[in-house]
Every structure is written in structure tokens, then in C-alpha cells.
């Protein structure tokens, strides 16, 4: 149709309407418009509004008061903010353990024995249950006096450890709970990846005498690159937006030592004792900027890979 239309337009020459002249350039934008509108309304505008709000002192009800960089200056000296930031870093570092752990389980399960489908589904099970349930299960697991973990430690050492009451251990306890479903998720990503590993290459490598670690490192892993990339992305983002487990298991306690940035933002802006919208927005902005570093990195890598034709 385009082929027919173009010579025609050229033949009729001068009186071309503006629409006709620009049709080619405008059409993609017209098709994009609904999406762009939604994206602007639900993504761009709220982000801009959060930035704007972070310069105010506002309780959500009364008058907004402009305080410029006041919220950010307060953040700079707020010990609770640094605790949250530190915990976010710990989350990020330890959560990434889900990637190698998921890979190990995936390789272990990637064999053909009777009932393997059942085992695979059992290993995948933790990811299916809701995070809230995971949090509840682990808080009972750790619970002082009757928790399985508590009693196990008591049995071994003679003195129980209440993980969620200990300011030094609590974050690790929560991350352990978070790793459980995350490992299952990464495992499933790798299992699908392993399906696409080319048997010819494995065969060829075997003929050349590659075995064990060398086989994994030089033959299997390079073929799993797309799966690794996705696993790292979802894990990093999962670590940064960790909220539900903290909220369910400790509510940020004891005395705020298990807070992460997203939870601290919720606490300041929306919880029972909070309603400091501006301060919450300032925390959100900081979290956004941290996430932006990673997200830009991922996007940059994706664009580069596309250009190189992976």
C-alpha cells in the first residue's frame, strides 16, 4: 500500500497537505501516544511529584511548607537513615548469593531420573507462596521459646538465640528468609536456560576432555549468559525493594535495626506514627537514585548487547 501511495503522491506533486507530508514521521508517535500517555501519567509524573514533594514539610493534611533542601539535610544527620542504607547494602550483597545457589540447584536438578518433575516443582514451591507467608513462617521458625531454629540452637549450644530480637543478627535473619524464595526463582530461570544449552557443544567439549568445573565454566556458563543476566537483574531489584519481609517479620525493629530504605520511607510517610510526606519523599528520591545506578547499568548493557548482535 505504501509502495502504491508514494509514487502517486509524488506525481500529484505541489498541493500536499501537512498531514500527508508528515504522515511517515507522525504515525509511529500516534501509535505510541496511548502508551506514552499512560507511562507519563503513572510513572514519570509521580516520580517528578516525589522530587517536588521532597522539598516540603507536609503532614498530608495541612498546608505544605517549602523547606528547600531541609529534608535532605536532615537525612544527612539521621542515624536511622544510615542504618537503613547499610542494611540495603547488606541485602544487596547477600541477596546475590541467590544466583550461584540457584545455579547449583538447577544443575543438580537438570537430570533425567524418575519423578524429576515432582522434585523440580517442590524446589520451586517457595517462590509460589506469598512473601507474607514466607515472613510469617520464618518468624515462627526464629521465635524465642517455641521456634524450631531457636530450639535447635538451644539444643546445640545450651542457649537459644532469638534472631529477630538481636540488633546484630536481625537483618541476616530476614535476608535468609528472603533468599529461600529467591533461590527458587533463580533456579527456574537457570533450568529453562539449561534446556537451551546446545548438546553438540557439550559433546564436543567432552571429546576434547573437558570435565567438571572446566566444563561448567568454559562451556555451560557462557551459554547461560542471558539467564544469568536476568537472574542478576531480578535479584538486585528484589534486594533494593525488599519491604514485605521486613514489615512482616520485625516491623523494622528491634529499635529500627532491621529497617531498609523502602521500609523507612513507608514508616516516615504512611505508618501510624509517620505522616511526614516530604521526608518520606526525600528517602524515596535517594532510593530512586540508587536504583537508577543499577537500572541504567542494566539498560546500557542491554543496548550494547543488542548493537553487538547477541
Amino acid at each position: 500500500m505504501t509502495r502504491a501511495a508514494l509514487p502517486n503522491a509524488r506525481a500529484e506533486a505541489p498541493p500536499r497537505s501537512w498531514w500527508r507530508a508528515n504522515q511517515q514521521r507522525l504515525t509511529p508517535w500516534l501509535f505510541l501516544a496511548p502508551g506514552l500517555f499512560m507511562f507519563g501519567l503513572y510513572v514519570i509524573w509521580p516520580i517528578a511529584d516525589s522530587f517536588w514533594l521532597s522539598f516540603f514539610d507536609w503532614d498530608g493534611l495541612g498546608e505544605k511548607r517549602w523547606i528547600g533542601w531541609g529534608n535532605y539535610q536532615e537525612l544527612r544527620t539521621d542515624p536511622a537513615f544510615y542504618t537503613s542504607l547499610k542494611n540495603n547494602v547488606i541485602w544487596l550483597a547477600l541477596y546475590l548469593l541467590a544466583v550461584p545457589a540457584g545455579l547449583m540447584i538447577a544443575i543438580f536438578l537438570n537430570q533425567t531420573v524418575f519423578g524429576i518433575r515432582l522434585y523440580k516443582s517442590l524446589f520451586f514451591f517457595p517462590f509460589v507462596i506469598s512473601q507474607v507467608v514466607v515472613g510469617l513462617m520464618f518468624s515462627w521458625f526464629y521465635a524465642p521459646n517455641f521456634g524450631l531454629f531457636y530450639q535447635l540452637i538451644e539444643w546445640i549450644t545450651g542457649r537459644g538465640v532469638a534472631v529477630l530480637a538481636d540488633p546484630d543478627l536481625v537483618t541476616y535473619g530476614i535476608i535468609a528468609a528472603g533468599l529461600w524464595p529467591q533461590i527458587a526463582y533463580v533456579m527456574i530461570l537457570y533450568l529453562t536456560g539449561l534446556n537451551n544449552v546446545s548438546p553438540d557443544q557439550v559433546e564436543a567439549a567432552r571429546l576434547d576432555g573437558a570435565r567438571g568445573w572446566r566444563m561448567l565454566w568454559y562451556v555451560i556458563l557462557p551459554q547461560l549468559r542471558p539467564a544469568t543476566f536476568i537472574a542478576v537483574v531480578v535479584t538486585v531489584i528484589g534486594a533494593l525493594r525488599s519491604f514485605d519481609l521486613v514489615s512482616i517479620m520485625t516491623d523494622g525493629g528491634p529499635f529500627g535495626s532491621s529497617r531498609v530504605l523502602s521500609f523507612y520511607m513507608f514508616e516516615q510517610a504512611l505508618s501510624e506514627y509517620g505522616f511526614r510526606m516530604g521526608y518520606g519523599a526525600a528517602i524515596a528520591v535517594v532510593l530512586f537514585l540508587i536504583m537508577m545506578v543499577f537500572i541504567s547499568g542494566f539498560i546500557w548493557k542491554m543496548v550494547r548487547d543488542e548493537r553487538e548482535g547477541y
Partner: peptide, 11 residues
């Protein structure tokens, strides 16, 4: 009570 930080008031 030790570990009070990890328990609810009902516990």
C-alpha cells in the same frame, strides 16, 4: 523477659 523485642504482647 529476654527477647521481648521479638515477641508480641500476646506472646
Amino acid at each position: 523477659t529476654a527477647n521481648h523485642a521479638a515477641i508480641d504482647w500476646q506472646d
